[in-house]
Write a protein that binds this DNA or RNA. Structure first.
Ligand SMILES: [Mn+2]
Ligand SMILES: [Mn+2]
Ligand SMILES: [Zn+2]
Ligand SMILES: [Zn+2]
Lengths: 137, 137
DNA sequence: AATCAACTGCAATGGAAGTGCATTTTTAGC
DNA sequence: GCTAAAAATGCACTTCCATTGCAGTTGATT
């Protein structure tokens, strides 16, 4: 169990109050969040700072972007040991069309996808849309 | 072999000069197009008209949207007999990170995706990013 | 030809992503 | 501790795309 400080330092991310708060916010969420979600949670902070903070997190490899088809990019913390940067982010994402939440299904890996001759696959984005467990019960 | 007029009428889309031209434009393209692509091809027409035309095509089920992750929605004609509206659009899409083109791989079907208990899958969006056949040769 | 509905064009809006620059905070060297 | 440099933050502004309201035009129907 590492502290947040240790996680950030291990990725060469300098520690600031803002970053600790945003990291904690992301860690507490079980769903992917939009920039607006973060904005609403930290009304005193400027949107640009929040934007650049998650961007830094993403660049350093502790957050990954999710395009779930809503047109609004969402963000989620990477799992321990994840390396989205190097190879494709292997897990799939679920987007609930009822509650609009998007969830990382981190242990549902994306199957190998065949592409025609001449095509070279480098990355795969797989989003399943439907009804989540909470909305279907 | 149906004429464009017959296709449109069979889907309850009224025939106008604009719609015939746009349909023909889409049919000639082997890749998915953005609204700007259409705009550039029809500079005399208003962007709104083009927008609403593809939207009508989409609502009536002869065009499907593609979200390839670039943030710009693309459009492509549905194949004959396709029914994206009813069930999931089964084929996958390939987005070339070199030439920025997005292609329907209509005979590459999306494999069955397992989701956890309680989740109900209704639709799947699968985009493969990489290098297309023309750019890799 | 008249009428009504659908289509088109123009203008404006809104949302989200991104950038330039000034200010503040943090770090590091002395 | 003090100072200079570097990094982070806040504010203003821009750009790009999607979308809508409304007025004018076109097309279908009688
Ligand atoms: Mn994820
Ligand atoms: Mn397609
Ligand atoms: Zn839900
Ligand atoms: Zn290409």
């Amino acid at each position: 169990m590492n502290t947040i400080e240790e996680v950030l330092e291990s990725k060469d991310i300098r520690i600031t109050a803002m970053r600790l708060l945003i990291y904690k916010f992301l860690a507490e969420k079980e769903v992917a969040v939009t920039l607006s979600d973060i904005e609403n949670a930290f009304e005193k902070a400027d949107r640009t700072t929040l934007y650049r903070t998650v961007k830094t997190f993403e660049d350093k490899g502790i957050v990954h972007q999710i395009d779930d088809g809503t047109g609004i990019t969402k963000y989620a913390l990477c799992e321990k040991g994840c390396n989205c940067e190097i190879e494709t982010d292997l897990h799939l994402h679920f987007h609930c069309i009822n509650c609009n939440k998007t969830i990382c299904l981190t242990d549902h890996k994306i199957p190998q996808i065949k592409v025609p001759d001449g095509f070279v696959s480098e990355n795969v984005n797989l989003v399943v849309k439907g009804i989540c467990d909470k909305c279907s019960s």
